[in-house]
Amino acid sequence: MIEVKNVEKSFGNAKVLKGVSTIFETGKTNLIIGQSGSGKTVLLKSLLGIHTPDKGTISFDGRIYSDLTPDEKRALRTEIGMVFQGSALFDSMTVEENVGFPLKMFTNKSTAEIKERVDFVIDRVDLKEAHHKKPSELSGGMQKRVAIARAIVNNPKYLFCDEPNSGLDPKTSIIIDNLIHEITVEYNITTVINTHDMNSVMEIGEKIIFLKKGILAWEGTKKDIFKTDNEAITDFVYSSNLFKKIRKAQNKEE
């Protein structure tokens, strides 16, 4: 469980996060949704420790990040896996080397143990044929799988994904969403996903927070989202005609 309390963050004069408080639950896919520029990435990077909040605290199962010693922070980092928006695979390394990289750098596992674990996670994300390929030889969806494999190779307790569907077609997006969800449940990970994709919300929105201009404007589950009268969120969700229709259909059912 990750607890975010009153987090504020500014860049120069621009206040990007204006006091965000929420809880991201363990074993669930927690979604941060909102328009481009609403502060999703900044919030996620604050969780990661890449940005330091100006105010407020972030605690990981009771460990308040800003109170940790540098050694404790480093130890906590090894419990975090991150899937970046553009996958952020190291282009000079093969798939296998990318996935094994965190193990090689931060564990004293033997080459054979690393190989075994790398093979296991590469299989887990269904990428059997790609071991020796370079990232540039893979499709966007395959790159995402490699990024997921790299993020989970060191058995993280926390998994963060920034727009895991960006650049993917709708079908691949759903497959990737479900892969992240399955892994979350299977290994009881606290997963936080940034997205502006309503399909993801429908698929895996177990807990959703909605950011609007740096303010947490709404939170709930994928069921709640179609019932709420909160204007900010309905405005965001029903900007597409498809979801207007879905809302009508759902209201009829009840």
Binding site: I50, R74, I80, M82, F84, A88, L89, F90, D91, F106
Partner: peptide
């Protein structure tokens, strides 16, 4: 620079490198 804009440097930092 490419590593910076494609967040590969962030990826290294997150891993603690």
């Amino acid at each position: 620079g490419t590593m910076r804009v494609t967040e590969q440097i962030d990826a290294l930092e997150v891993m603690g490198v």
